[in-house]
Design a protein around this nucleic acid. Structure first.
Length: 638
RNA sequence: GCCCACAUAGCUCAGCGGUAGAGCACUCCCUUGGUAAGGGAGAGGUCUCCGGUUCAAGCCCGGAUGUGGGCUCCA
């Protein structure tokens, strides 16, 4: 019996009985048949092109233009990878092979980890299978039959996966030539559609991500619709590598790492300039937003950490030390110290909100293997502050914080932000009423600030709900920076009290908040975001002074003195080098401005200005240029 | 912590059982040069550390330390 389907343009098409997406695409035209990857039925999810069509269905042929098509392609490429591995390493057992951001991976249980040469061979085999253009065919069977089938194939990991699926359900799998894999699908119609892919690297990964399970060997890869897209993506990876803050930090002489202090940065003079500029900026805003800064001890008695709960919940991340038979811990957080500070006097509602900021150095023991450059270290400072306030003032404190946060992110040019609200977890302290109030306050404050946010149900801290702020950097990579957490637990544990307006005792609420998060990590992000070309206000050297000959040295010194008087950071290059060499060296150090000084400039009290990006800007009176530079720094232009 | 890889001059790297190399950077000399590398000379290394194999180890084998890629984005 023939059937009728409706196309996206609302036209009706007659098809023979048993028609599939393939039949339809072929009936429309050979070019579409070639481009077709799947179908979308009645506006639903993407499905195989070979799915049988039903009478009266709305059918859309999906090609590479569909937003979901790339995932389909990548998933099929993961299968292609598994097939190639099974051909070359028949003993390998397949794990899972999902699509990830920009690519895919596949896990294998093997005796010996894959080498880079293996990877090249596997990639070549994938190419061969692609040229074989094997049809990819869906097969369905009851769960128990699937369990038996994978058991017979010796694929113990797949047996485990299928066994986790409820009994009685139908299982789908896909066959392409000699390879069969459990998969929900959908997939491309044949392996010939997979052309632009590359295997990137291998890594160990625990089966199901659980470190009690055996370690599998994971192969990461990427796949695109065209060679051009693939190459562009590889170029982006190169670009990210070129911006790697570990590499730039060394090249720009910002910081270094030493085995004597693993995962702990040493900031060089230039890195320290940037670091301090960040601190100065945040301090300036603290003044504007009514914060007061405090300095609190580094090492505190364990009794404090027992009161705060860190001793029970956080000890594995803490450093301990003993002196005169008394046990101490190096602080991993400032909050308990701030509670002592709050409790050091009888407090009145008139003193609230009390906003206590602390750039104290923190030490957290991170397991070896998880540390990374500046972004995951064992010692760092945060732009940390705690706001002690009356419960009814939570909302306005948040509003003020959000304004501050926006101001900071704008300054760095982070205009795109993602915000997530994490709500009460299963295991938590405090009553439901308190959680209701806290979550509502956070949500309302966000809404009133006009910030869209997503929900992470159950992801809050055990002591209160929290908001996390993510920004996107120049390469559109997300980074979590700021956080705002409502805490009812610490004030309770430290028995913090204040006298309310009605004369009775109240318990303050504590808000934990940070904007840049860890200054170390933020600097790493900033280096990658700017590729090391810091805006003038952060640049370790704001202008390099480059005399052309010895005759200009005296004038060059004079220019430096003038610049210094205006609070500018300059580098005077008196080396016996040609001007080209001097320019090149400072250009490589990404100095924003280079001032070229010869006889002509010296005679006219001018500087010849070269900008690191815009190039030669011509001559200008020295005083005018220096004032302009000072203003650029002062306004924190980016 | 676990899997895999790597560790040679300040940096980037070559050397692959037989007396340690290059480029850049550094020091000195010549050169005073107008918008991305002028020329020459010199100095610099218990080849990460500790054991082992060998007549002989930077190189082969253990171990330690550090660094790097990762350790669900769930068929």
């Amino acid at each position: 019996m023939p059937l009728q389907v409706r196309l996206p343009d609302d036209s009706i098409r007659q098809l023979p009985d048993g028609a599939t997406g393939t039949t339809l695409a072929e009936s429309i035209g050979p070019r579409l048949a070639e481009a077709a990857l799947g179908v979308r039925l009645d506006g639903g999810k993407l499905q195989d092109l070979g799915t049988p069509l039903l009478d009266g269905q709305k059918v859309a042929i999906v090609t590479s233009k569909d937003p979901e098509a790339l995932d389909l392609l990548r998933h099929s490429t993961a299968h292609l990878l598994a097939q190639a591995v099974k051909r070359l390493f028949p003993a390998a057992k397949v794990g899972i092979g999902p699509v990830i951001e920009d690519g895919f991976y596949y896990d294998f249980l093997v005796e010996k980890a894959f080498t880079p040469e293996d990877l090249a061979a596997i990639e070549a085999e994938m190419m061969r299978i692609s040229r074989e253009d094997l049809p990819v065919v869906r097969e369905e069977m009851p769960r128990n039959a699937a369990v038996e089938r994978f058991r017979a194939m010796g694929e113990q990991l797949k047996v485990e996966v299928v066994s986790d699926i409820p009994e009685g359900e139908t299982i789908s799998g896909y066959r392409q030539g000699d390879f069969y894999d459990l998969c929900r699908g959908p997939h491309v119609p044949s392996t010939g559609k997979l052309k632009a892919f590359k295997l990137l690297h291998t890594a160990g990964a625990y089966w199901k991500g659980d470190e009690r399970n055996p370690m599998l060997c994971r192969i990461y890869g990427t796949a695109w619709f065209s060679q051009k897209d693939l190459e562009e993506h590889l170029k982006r990876l190169e670009e990210a590598k070129a911006r790697d803050h570990r590499k730039l930090g060394r090249e720009l002489d910002l910081y270094s790492f030493h085995p004597e202090a693993p995962a702990s940065p040493f900031f060089h003079p230039k890195g320290t300039v940037v670091y301090n500029a960040l601190v100065d900026y945040i301090r300036e805003l603290y003044h504007k937003y009514g914060y007061r800064e405090v300095i609190t001890p580094q090492i505190l008695d364990v009794s404090l950490w027992k009161t705060s709960g860190h001793y029970e919940n956080y000890a594995e991340n803490m450093y301990f030390t003993t002196a005169e038979e008394r046990e101490y811990a190096v602080k991993p957080m400032n909050c308990p110290g701030h509670c002592l500070l709050f409790g050091s006097a009888k407090r009145s509602y008139r003193e609230l909100p009390m906003r206590i900021a602390d750039f104290g150095r923190l030490h957290r023991f991170e397991r070896s293997g998880v540390t990374h450059g500046l972004t995951r270290v064992r010692t760092f400072c945060q732009d940390d502050a705690h706001l002690f306030c009356e419960p009814e003032h939570i909302k306005e404190e948040m509003a003020s914080f959000l304004a501050l946060l926006k101001e900071v992110y704008d300054t760095f040019g982070f205009h795109e932000m993602r915000v997530a609200l994490s709500t009460r977890p299963e295991k938590r302290l405090g009553s439901d009423e308190v959680w209701d109030a806290g979550e509502k306050a956070l949500a309302d404050a966000m809404t009133e600030a006009g910030m869209a946010f997503t929900l992470n149900p159950g992801e809050g801290a055990f002591y209160g709900p929290k908001i996390e702020f993510q920004i996107l950097d120049a390469l559109r990579r997300p980074w979590q920076l700021g956080t705002l957490q409502v805490d009812y637990m610490l004030p309770e544990r430290f028995k913090l009290r204040y006298t309310r307006a009605d004369g009775h005792e109240g318990q303050p609420v504590m808000l934990h908040r940070a904007i840049l998060g860890s200054l170390e990590r933020f600097m790493g992000i900033l280096v990658e975001h700017t590729a090391g070309a810091f805006p003038v206000w952060l640049a370790p050297v704001q202008a390099a002074i480059l005399p052309i000959t010895d005759r200009a040295h005296a004038y060059a010194r004079q220019v430096q003195e003038e610049a210094q008087a205006l609070g500018l950071r300059t580098d005077l290059d008196l080396r016996n080098e040609k001007i080209n060499a001097k320019i090149r060296d400072h250009q490589l150090m990404k100095v924003p401005y280079m001032l070229v000084l010869g006889d002509r400039e010296a005679a006219a009290a001018q500087v010849s200005v070269r900008h690191r990006h815009a190039g030669d800007q011509g001559v200008t009176p020295t005083a005018a240029f220096l004032e302009r530079l000072r203003d650029e720094a002062r306004t924190r232009a980016h």
